[in-house]
């Protein structure tokens, strides 16, 4: 009987309890790292956020943007913002965010078939979609459109500028990432989520171009700063995560 037949990686003679625990820890760590695929949702949602740029042209600071919704689709806007194309921005988020969650679910399934380990990703997808639906259901225009009671949105007045830039979908994305970090059991993704939350809040509450103005105004146009910073953050850390995953995979000869 060969060593592989007797005990595989645990050896022939039988390791002591301490050595057994170390081996089990290595097996567990290897499986966790083989399972990790959060680079994809980070890059995808970063791209989704950046994809909204054309709809927010000249919106930040209201430089020439149209104030308020003017059509039925406008009422689905996620805030008073949305630049010269508030209806376009609303439609863009309505389609791209749910679609992105579906694409993430499909990606994880395809990857599981390739690597042989499957992560639980549906809680992340469901959380993201539910949060997005809640955001949609409480959008100022939607509530008025369906003659909902005023108390349903009275809380919004307490949130100050949160809705003024029409970028609240970014907040929904940032909150759902914590769920994914828990499912992936990844400290890396957890800390990325922690760092991204204030970025998402800042994108909704502050004209980030004001900060760039003090450095060099022309680096980032006013209308693009908030979206570029939020989307660029996710794309950057998604790329870093992918590189780290590939480096680990090539060391261990595993699929990534």
């Amino acid at each position: 009987m060969g060593s592989a037949e007797a005990g595989g990686i645990f050896g022939v003679e039988g390791p002591r309890a301490g050595e057994l625990l170390e081996t089990l820890d290595r097996v567990t760590q290897r499986t966790r790292l083989a399972r990790h695929a959060y680079w994809f949702p980070l890059m995808l949602f970063g791209a989704v956020i950046l994809g909204a740029l054309p709809f927010y042209y000249y919106s930040i600071g209201n430089y020439g943007g149209r104030p308020g919704p003017i059509s039925v689709i406008d009422r689905f806007g996620f805030g008073a913002g949305g630049g010269n194309h508030p209806w376009g921005a609303a439609l863009y988020w309505l389609i791209s965010v749910p679609l992105a969650y579906v694409v993430v679910a499909v990606f994880y399934k395809v990857r599981a078939n390739r690597t042989g380990v499957r992560s639980r990703v549906w809680p992340f997808v469901v959380t993201g979609l539910v949060l997005f639906a809640m955001l949609l259901a409480t959008a100022p225009g939607v509530v008025i459109l369906f003659h909902a009671p005023v108390w349903l949105v009275s809380w919004q007045s307490k949130l100050g500028d949160l809705y003024s830039r029409g970028l609240t979908p970014i907040l929904v994305i940032s909150i759902a990432l914590f769920v994914l970090a828990r499912l992936e059991r990844s400290w890396g993704l957890f800390w990325i989520s922690v760092a991204f939350l204030p970025v998402a809040l800042l994108a909704n509450l502050y004209n980030i171009s004001n900060a760039f103005y003090r450095i060099n105004h022309w680096i980032v146009p006013d209308w693009a700063a908030n979206i570029a910073v939020a989307g660029g953050f996710l794309v950057f850390f998604g790329a870093v995560s992918l590189i780290a995953q590939r480096a680990w995979s090539s060391r261990h000869g595993a699929s990534s």
Partner: peptide
């Protein structure tokens, strides 16, 4: 030992394929 290894992998993931278990262990 091998059964502990199987359960260790499954504790870390929702599902694992036979081929992955065979390779990892």
């Amino acid at each position: 030992r091998a059964r502990l290894g199987v359960l260790a992998v499954l504790h870390e993931t929702a599902r694992a394929e036979f081929g992955y278990l065979k390779e990892a262990l």
